[in-house]
Each structure stands twice: as C-alpha cells, then as structure tokens.
Nucleic acid binder design. Sequence first.
DNA 1: TGTACATCAGTGAACGCGCGTTCACTGATGTAC
DNA 2: TGTACATCAGTGAACGCGCGTTCACTGATGTAC
Lengths: 204, 204
Amino acid sequence: MAKRGYHHGNLRQALVEAALDLIAEKGPTGFTMAEAAKTAGVSAAAPYRHFAGREDLLAEVASQGYERFADVLEFAFNDGQPSPLAAFEAVGRAYLAFARKYPGHYMAMFEAGLAPGHTPELAKASERANRVLRRAAETLSARIPPERRPPSAMFAAHITALSHGIVELYARGKPGTRTPFTPEELLETGVGIYLRGLGLIERD
Amino acid sequence: MAKRGYHHGNLRQALVEAALDLIAEKGPTGFTMAEAAKTAGVSAAAPYRHFAGREDLLAEVASQGYERFADVLEFAFNDGQPSPLAAFEAVGRAYLAFARKYPGHYMAMFEAGLAPGHTPELAKASERANRVLRRAAETLSARIPPERRPPSAMFAAHITALSHGIVELYARGKPGTRTPFTPEELLETGVGIYLRGLGLIERD
DNA sequence: TGTACATCAGTGAACGCGCGTTCACTGATGTAC
DNA sequence: TGTACATCAGTGAACGCGCGTTCACTGATGTAC
C-alpha cells in the first residue's frame, strides 16, 4: 500500500479505505474528497481520475460494504446448519458484529442517505444482502404452521429493524444514550422473545 | 409570524421553525445558519443574537422535539388506561406518528449526532421522553410473573429499537428500500409477536 | 403628555476557510518496431 | 536490446461558492423624569 513514486499503484482502493476511516470517524457527511485524497497521500485532484465525484466514491464504499455484509451474513447462516434456529441466531449476531467491526461501511450503507439505486453495483450488492436476510427468515419460518406464519418478508423486516435500531441507539459511543445492556444482549433477548412469540422456541 | 418592520418580534422561535423545515427537507447536516436566517426573512448575522451558534440552534430544535415527543407519548399512554396492553400499543403507534408528523424534530433528535448532554435542556427533555417509554414498559410488564419478567429497561429498549429501526429503514421516502408493508403494519405485527413471546397476549 | 436616553434586536459588509471540481501540465509506464 | 511514442495517472494552481462568525453600526422600543 506504500506510495511508490509518481504513480500510486492502487489509488482507487486507497481512496476507498481513506474514506472508510474518515466516515467511521466523522460520519458520512463529515467525509470530504480533499481529506480522502490527503489521507491517501495524493493531491486533491487525483481522486477525479477514479471517481466521477464525491457521491460516486461514497457509493463505491457502500457497495463494498454491502458485498462484505452479504458475505458475513451468508457465512453466519451457513445454509441453515446446524439448525434453522441456530443459523438464524448466528445471522443476528453477525449483523451486530458487522456494524461494530466495519463502522465506516455501515454508516455509508445506512446513514449516508444514498438512494439504493444510485449505482447499478450498489443496487445489486444491497439486494444481495437483503436476499440473505430473507432466506434466513424463510428457512426458519418454514417451521411454523402455514396458517400462523407471517410473510417471510415481514419476519425479515422485523429482525432487520430491531437490529438496526439497536445499532443506531445503543451500539454507538454516544455518551448519554446508555442502557445497562450490551447491544448483543439486547438483540439476543429481543430475538428470543420474538421467536417465542412465533412458537419457534419452547415456552420457558 | 409576519415580520413587522425592523424588529422581528419572535425571531428565536421563527429560526427554530425555519430549521425544522430545512432539516426535514435536507437532513440535519444539510441545514445551515445562513439559510435558516434567510427563511426567517432576516440577515445572516441576526441568529447570533439568539443562539451561540449552529449547534446551539440545533440543540434547541432537538430539545423542543423531545418535549413534544414526551407529550405525545404521555398522551397516548394515558396513564395505562383503558388497559396496560392497549396503552402500550397506543404508545407504539404514537412513536411512529410522531416520526411521520414531525420529521424535522425526529431527525434533529436522532440523526444529528448531538450528544444528549449538549445542553441541560436537551438532557432534561430527552430524559423525560425516555421516562415515559420506560413507564409504559413497566406498567405492562408488571403483568408478567416476576420470574419470567425481563428488566423493564430492557423491555423498553427492545420496543424503542424496533420502532426506531422501522422509522429509519421503512418509513423514509428512500426509493428502493421498499417492503410491501406499511411502517404501522410492521410495528403492530412486530410488537404483537413480541408481546406474545412474553405471554402478554393469548396464543392465537 | 413630552422628551432624553439606555437598551437591544436587527443590518450589512467583511473575514478566513475549506470544499468540490476543472484544467493545462508533466512524469512514469508499457508497447510497437 | 534500444528507441519513439501513445497512454494515462498524477500535479499544482486556480475557480467560484457558501458557510459560520464577527464587528461596528443603526433603527426601534421602552422607561425615567
């Protein structure tokens, strides 16, 4: 990754990584082209050889985030093994772990206000991640008697919303927004109660 | 609210309202002092007679938001009448209604990245709103046998996170983030399943 | 009731700043012969 | 292997812009006498 003379070598990706650091530090709107260029050790004009503009770089960051997100979730889901329930719970934990480990990606994906269709790549990547979540929900909800089964898209939306809400409200370092519970505890207990409500976990 | 000559009459509140419109339209970071002043029909320097700076105006907007939020939730809770369950569900609906009706407030409160302790007023107002939510959770959870009862702060956090997640992911006009369900449907069904999991609603 | 004066909410011009972006350029790289 | 040349990833200077904020000012308001 070291700069090697006049030509950088891999400036495009270096800019993405600079943006990730800046976004993680100051939020998606705190990130600027000029600073990303500086971080990458390059003049302010150089980024325009690789990206049409600020939004374009942001969209690339988000795209890469969704790809990694989908990878992580898919790995956690593990084709529903060893059991749909265990796999589902692993996906939930993976969601939180992703938000914690890749805050720059997460913020670019969910807090930058980019239209998901901004770029074809972005649309494709975000759809892929959603598909994994929906599949996890479908696999698990196949265990519920059909007449009591909520639509799997709704199931997935509930869990996604709960996870995202926990990340936004309780997993950030904001002083003052404190609960005595860790995000992981909150998600685990919340999902547990929810699944019990669907009859997917024994009562008590 | 009409400007009456050299002196405005109620510039402070007019600026708050201008900020609300701007925030609702372009997000908390899209709002600028200069534009708020212009919207209020006043020179760019005038706001500094009433607010120490941009952050200070933002904090005032958020404070007023939390106050109204607390009012709305308290009204919906209605001291737990006619029943703890009905009151609790009304609070959930009120949460969504608030986010929809007062987007500028909501964004200033939850998306501006203000530390809750930024201003004493802000801290006080946000605490008040949280207290209402916690009280609704406590009242309802008193119906659960103590040994199976989750801490009420956890209960409240689950519902708050679900509500916030639904607002952020599904209640905004973002094209592309579509579910076939309305935010209201999602919250109602999600909370319903959750409460069933706690044994607070009959199975089926 | 009329006048002098203190108060203070506004004005308008100015500042320094950092941003996104453009443009003519230059230095490095790779390839054809 | 050596040279000429096309390509293209960088540079650096410059632009126009809008922002947050300051400052000396001025006009309106209210009050003491």
